[in-house]
Computed example of a mutant assay.
Amino acid sequence: MAKDVETGGEYTTKDYTDPPPAALIDVEEITKWSLYRAVIAEFVATMLFLYVTVATVIGYKHQSDPNVNTTDAACSGVGILGIAWAFGGMIFILVYCTAGISGGHINPAVTFGLFLARKVSLIRAVLYIIAQCLGAICGVGLVKGFQKSYYVRYGGGANELSSGYSHGTGLAAEIIGTFVLVYTVFSATDPKRNARDSHVPVLAPLPIGFAVFMVHLATIPITGTGINPARSFGAAVIYNKDKAWDDHWIFWVGPFIGAGIAALYHQFVLRASAAKAMGSSYRSNM
């Protein structure tokens, strides 16, 4: 148990307890309905996320097509800003809806980062990633089913490295973008922060969604913004053209590296987990 010191006499902070690390392999977890309910929630949330966001991308490309809108195509549709809002807004909504059930990951990179930090077990992490990828495929499949002609014509919302950018630049964009997202997830859900700032009603999904929004503004011109392997994988599977697969590895390797760095930075630098563990071990041997 740890307690934060009251500052300035104005606010009283709460005691907090860091939850124990999740078991690496929790066999008992497989027998619990709560696990499968969480997996279903991840599937449905990722499906909805991909449906709304990819439909937004397709709609924007159609509205701004000079062959369709001959008068003012450049200013038609939601624009890059609107696409970024669609991604960030949907993450805010879906994390808010599912956080109490599954944790609201909706992203294999987030799940991977939380697994490295021992926030979820290996079994839960694997099932989440499978559910997220299947949900993404179904979500993009819905877009194609409802808008098949537009879907094929406008690239299916698939991520690809933009012309003029090297593979290194695209990989760096995905690493840094995912780092920002996963770092925000750790900070927004940190029990110590929640206790210290208990007088400030911070809604965790809000900064997470806003992080997604900001990263999209920076990286849409480079990679179309992946930072979510399930999002990239679902679009690539349904579109299934060469350009969707050519640089697909970037949208797995980059997010996983970024998530790993964010987990290590938060746990071992900001929270100094390694130092705490060594100190506890030292005291127990005294």
Rank of each mutant, 00 (worst) to 15 (best):
T12I: 15
I137Y: 01
V212I: 15
A204G: 03
N194P: 00
P108S: 10
F268I: 07
K61Q: 15
V140D: 05
D65N: 11
Y183Q: 14
G260R: 03
Q132K: 00
Y36M: 00
Y60I: 13
M214N: 10
K32A: 03
T219D: 15
I175M: 08
I222H: 02
F115C: 08
A131D: 08
Y11H: 14
V27Q: 07
Y128P: 08
C138E: 07
A117H: 13
L264Y: 11
A230Q: 05
D4T: 14
R271F: 00
G88D: 00
V78T: 09
G79I: 06
P207T: 06
G100N: 10
Y128C: 06
D15R: 10
V44K: 01
T178N: 05
C97R: 12
G59S: 10
I129G: 04
F256H: 11
G135H: 10
K144A: 10
Y165W: 11
R124S: 08
A38P: 05
S149L: 12
I238K: 11
T225Q: 07
H199A: 14
T184W: 00
I101E: 00
F92C: 11
H266T: 08
L206Y: 04
H105E: 03
S281E: 08
I93N: 00
I30S: 12
I227C: 05
L94P: 00
F49G: 06
V95P: 02
T225C: 10
T223P: 01
L203S: 12
W252C: 08
K241I: 14
F87C: 06
Y16T: 14
D15W: 04
S232K: 09
L81P: 04
S273T: 12
H266G: 01
A244L: 08
G141P: 06
H266I: 02
G170P: 02
N69K: 02
N194W: 01
Q267C: 15
I257H: 10
N228W: 00
G141Y: 12
T31V: 06
P205A: 15
G9I: 07
T189R: 03
V253E: 01
V212A: 11
A45V: 13
I58N: 02
G139P: 14
A23H: 10
Y36A: 04
P207I: 09
K144D: 04
A125F: 02
